Amino acid sequence: MAGPLAGLRIIELAGIGPGPFAGMMLADHGAEVIRVDRPGARIDSRDPLLRSRTLIGVDLKSPEGIAVVRDLVRTADGLIEGFRPGVTERLGLGPDVLLADNPKLVYGRMTGWGQTGPYAAAAGHDINYIALAGALHAFGRAGEKPTPPINMVGDFGGGGMMLAFGMVSALLHAAKTGAGQVIDAAMTDGAAVLMSMIWGFRANGMWSDDRGTNLLDTAAHFYDSYETADGKWIAIGSIEPQFYAELRRLTGLDAAPEFDAQMVRASWGPLKDKLTALFLTRTRDDWCEMMEMTDVCFAPVLSMAEAPAHPHNVARATFVEAGGVVQPAPAPRYSISTTAAPAMTTVFSGGDVLAGLGYDAARIAALTAAGTVR
């Protein structure tokens, strides 16, 4: 079976980070994604974010190049761009122009701050977006400074994934109504949405703004990572009473009365100290032998070098190799549809793309000779 998005054509105006991630997600699930890059761009064939694309190089500073992109978009269901607000309008590729050319077009805009608001025109990165969203403040241990969780929350969870969801939602709407629209996907907005459960905890009096003092932010002894005797780490998440009881049973702490006070916050620090000392008495493999696949809610903390070889990940083919690059496989999985086997993008196919638009050989040769397309 084909992917669930098979038959859809998406034009991706080249960018970095969250825009390409959204393009990767759409391509992984069957959409044809044509990435429009600069004619002289060098493509990193090792980058999973660029996998499974058709590439065409187009000079967006020339009227002829803009005309090429408009012709492409007339054949498309959607477009993704990640420029600052107003850039595509100045290029002549803004939503008003392209939706006039193609009224069913879904026009996806990926920015950090959004298309409107006081910050809209300012530069920024993931760390800035999640800071303004109220997310960064929650990441870190008690008494320590906020620690960004690399760039997963803003760029990818709140950015690229949110844009991909918005694209699919608007594409469904266009299929039913014939009406295209513009998606304003802001990483700040998306990062805020990812914190929805924590906002609920806060409303219920279950979450404090004091970092590292809450159930899920490393305060609790039963929800944290611990070093082992060989300098490696394990992760414990024994929140529910039955899982906590299993942790105590397997570690021999079921007879230690102080551990009865699971939800007494004043006990968390002293109990964590005891677990810290206990887990240092055995290696990570020893703890895995004891606790893996039990109801402790346990896992070894694996490095990127280790994760692809873990038996569970091997059994599910969570990681694949394509073009000599080990990378995450497309997700999620479907019972009927299939995801695309990752193919590393290396070759510009401008001639083929233009021929598919009806350009004859002479016109393609002229555009290529002029440096307008690659």
Rank of each mutant, 00 (worst) to 15 (best):
R84K: 14
E292Q: 10
G350W: 01
A121N: 10
D360H: 09
S337M: 00
L60A: 02
S225W: 04
G140Y: 13
I364P: 00
E258F: 02
P48E: 06
G351Q: 00
A6E: 15
G86K: 09
S238Y: 09
R38M: 06
R265Q: 13
M25D: 03
G117H: 08
G124Y: 05
W113R: 04
F259I: 03
V36S: 06
P308M: 14
L250C: 13
A203M: 15
N313D: 08
Q115P: 05
A369R: 06
L172E: 13
A355F: 02
M293Q: 05
V326W: 06
R248P: 01
R211Y: 10
L367Y: 01
T251C: 11
F156Y: 14
G143Q: 11
R333W: 09
L93M: 11
I16E: 14
D217L: 04
E64V: 00
A277E: 13
A27L: 14
Q181K: 07
K272A: 12
I66W: 03
L354I: 02
G65Y: 02
A366S: 12
A307Q: 05
G158A: 08
S267G: 03
L79F: 04
V373P: 00
G358R: 11
L13N: 05
R74A: 15
M25Q: 13
G154T: 01
V353Q: 00
L172P: 01
G269A: 13
T54H: 12
G205P: 09
D155F: 07
M24W: 08
L367Q: 02
V325Q: 12
M344V: 09
G212E: 14
D59W: 01
G180M: 03
M263L: 11
E144C: 08
G82P: 11
V320K: 09
A179M: 10
L367G: 03
A191I: 00
S225R: 08
D47M: 06
G143M: 11
G324H: 11
I66D: 01
V73R: 00
R141T: 05
L163W: 08
A355K: 07
A309R: 14
A174D: 06
V326H: 07
P48R: 07
W199S: 10
F156T: 01
H312F: 13
H310T: 03
M291D: 01
G82Y: 01
S267E: 11
V73Q: 03
G3N: 14
A131I: 05
W113H: 04
T147L: 15
K104C: 12
V314H: 15
I10T: 03
D273Y: 02
V69P: 00
P20L: 03
P257S: 09
L8V: 11
T338N: 08
A179I: 10
A76F: 10
A245E: 13
G82R: 07
A31T: 04
